[in-house]
Design a protein around this nucleic acid. Structure first.
Ligand code: FES
Ligand code: FES
Lengths: 143, 143
DNA sequence: AAAATAAAAGATAAATTTGTCTTTTATTGA
DNA sequence: TCAATAAAAGACAAATTTATCTTTTATTTT
């Protein structure tokens, strides 16, 4: 469905959202442990998301990653798009160069529905809404 | 969604299903042109599907790939599973080592539904049912 | 000002996926 | 039996993804 990079990115962003509520910042090391991902690798990924303005970071002691008010309005769809592009939302499921209503692949109508579902769900998942599920052990980001 | 290999595999199998109705066989070359894929690469892919019994082939002049009666009963889900495995049907969408109802990722309930939809659609798409959509220009496998 | 901390940046490497080329084997038909 | 055809098989190569390691830069605390 998503690339490994994208899976890490989504899990990391959710982790940041959940643990950085009160302007606290989270270090790469803690994120890596929290989502069970290679430290340097998610460092790179978060660096990219930072450049694109999806998340914030600060260097130095007491530094780390966090989300500001505007970032909390972004959705997981924005994260996925930033990492994997929007092929998953708009591309042909059978890999044709572009999805087309006029020249549909044999599964076009079915795929279209699924793609829309995926898009809808991810657009609805705003970063600000991942509050304290984790702490309450209602959701998990590692296993 | 699927790997490139899997996209080629599905398109190729549909192509074979559509063009080999009357025990006619289709050559790699024709398939490659028909679905716009690299010839030798789909050769490999189809070789694998053949070993797994999903499709049939015969060497020599008048040889090529075709589907026998039992292969026509397979579904695209079988093809996808043979190429990409069943992670797309059962795996966690956020990449946790396994999807779990007891320890769900934050999107578990949503992903579960989507995965089931994908599985349902592909299971329903039996190879024998791709008859002559292609000829009638109702569906397309290249662009 | 100096030391410590943590992300940014850059270089490199491993692994996997995707793609190509060549040789071999099976089948057909002349 | 021989030549032609087409898949099978194997070796190899390019590209991309995933991952690691080192150095630099910014920030804080002492
Ligand atoms: S053409 Fe394949 S999904 Fe639309
Ligand atoms: S735990 Fe992630 S999809 Fe079920």
């Amino acid at each position: 469905m998503f690339s490994k990079t994208c899976e890490y990115a989504v899990r990391a962003v959710i982790y940041i959202a959940q643990t950085s509520k009160h302007d606290e910042k989270v270090s790469i090391k803690e994120i890596a442990k929290g989502i069970d991902a290679p430290e340097h690798f998610i460092g790179k990924i978060l660096q990219d998301l930072g450049k694109k303005g999806l998340i914030q970071s600060l260097k130095g002691p007491k530094g780390g990653f966090y989300l500001d008010a505007s970032s909390r309005k972004y959705s997981l769809a924005d994260v996925v798009k930033a990492v994997d592009g929007d092929k998953i939302f708009y591309g042909c499921g059978l890999g044709l160069s572009q999805c087309s209503e006029a020249q549909p692949c044999p599964l076009h109508h079915e795929f279209k529905k699924i793609r829309n579902d995926i898009h809808r769900i991810l657009k609805k998942a705003k970063l600000g809404e991942f509050n304290d599920q984790l702490e309450q052990h209602l959701a998990f980001l590692r296993r």
